[in-house]
């Protein structure tokens, strides 16, 4: 993340110097800062609603039911998650919401799933295999109902605004498959290995100095 952020910003500064777009770029930057906060604030209400509802679903045993129902599909994808753990149920809820094109509700459910995965994560500042697998599937964007796209096409006067549904679903199936294969291969590479063995044998302490917010939520 350090490299990407650095490249984006430094590349931007150098290019702006060359193209003479310094003023516009500054404007865009400050505007983005403002809209980032608006986005987060807008998400709070939806987050609260879904977190409340998912807590109900947990207490009613629905999350466990969902987890057990989709167990055969989830076990090979997330071998590190203990069998029957509610984290799996929350992952399913997020994928389902994405399939239906539910936008911010999907984000809220996804963030809940991340909290659950962080609870199982031994190294609180390092992504676990399960997290990376979950996010790879998420960013691949498996979609059955691309509602926004259909709306834009329809308002532009398309004769068949929804004709792209099949193509979008197929394309996201391809990207999801690639995502899963990529994760399973990449996680075995030495460059991406979890540094747990090293640190544990060295000090026996989980290095978690400045991230107290962790995953335990009660």
């Amino acid at each position: 993340m350090n490299y990407i952020w650095g490249i984006l910003l430094l590349g931007g500064v150098i290019m702006a110097a060359f193209t003479g777009k310094m003023a516009e770029s500054t404007q865009a930057l400050l505007q983005a800062a403002k809209s980032a906060v608006e986005l987060a604030i807008g998400l709070i209400g939806i987050m609260a609603f879904w977190l409340g509802l998912m807590r109900l679903a947990e207490e009613a045993g629905l999350v466990r039911f969902l987890t057990r129902l989709l167990r055969p599909l989830l076990r090979p994808l997330f071998p590190q998650i203990p069998d029957g753990d509610p984290a799996l149920g929350h992952i399913v809820a997020n994928v389902a919401a994405n399939l239906l094109g539910l936008g911010n509700s999907a984000t809220a459910l996804g963030l809940k799933a991340m909290t659950e995965l962080q609870r199982l994560n031994p190294l609180k500042n390092v992504a676990s295999n399960a997290m990376v697998t979950f996010l790879a599937i998420n960013t691949a964007g498996l979609t059955l109902v691309p509602a926004t796209i259909i709306a834009v096409r329809s308002s532009a006067g398309s004769a068949r605004p929804a004709e792209i549904i099949g193509a979008v679903f197929l394309a996201t199936c391809v990207s999801t498959t690639v995502a899963v294969i990529a994760v399973k291969i990449l996680e075995k590479l030495p460059a991406f290995r979890v540094p747990s063995q090293v640190t544990e044998s060295a000090g026996g302490v989980v290095p978690d100095p400045d991230k107290p917010e962790g995953g335990s939520h009660d």
């Binding site: 963030l111 991340m114 960013t139 979609t143 990449l186």
Partner: peptide
């Protein structure tokens, strides 16, 4: 537009929400 998600946004927000800074192979896979 529909074929994939906004990878950078998802990674920043999802990992940020639980305080993870070492994202390992997540960006490459995404």
């Amino acid at each position: 537009m529909g074929s994939t998600e906004t990878t950078f946004y998802v990674l920043a927000v999802y990992f940020g929400s639980v305080g993870i800074s070492k994202i390992r192979h997540a960006l490459w896979a995404g």
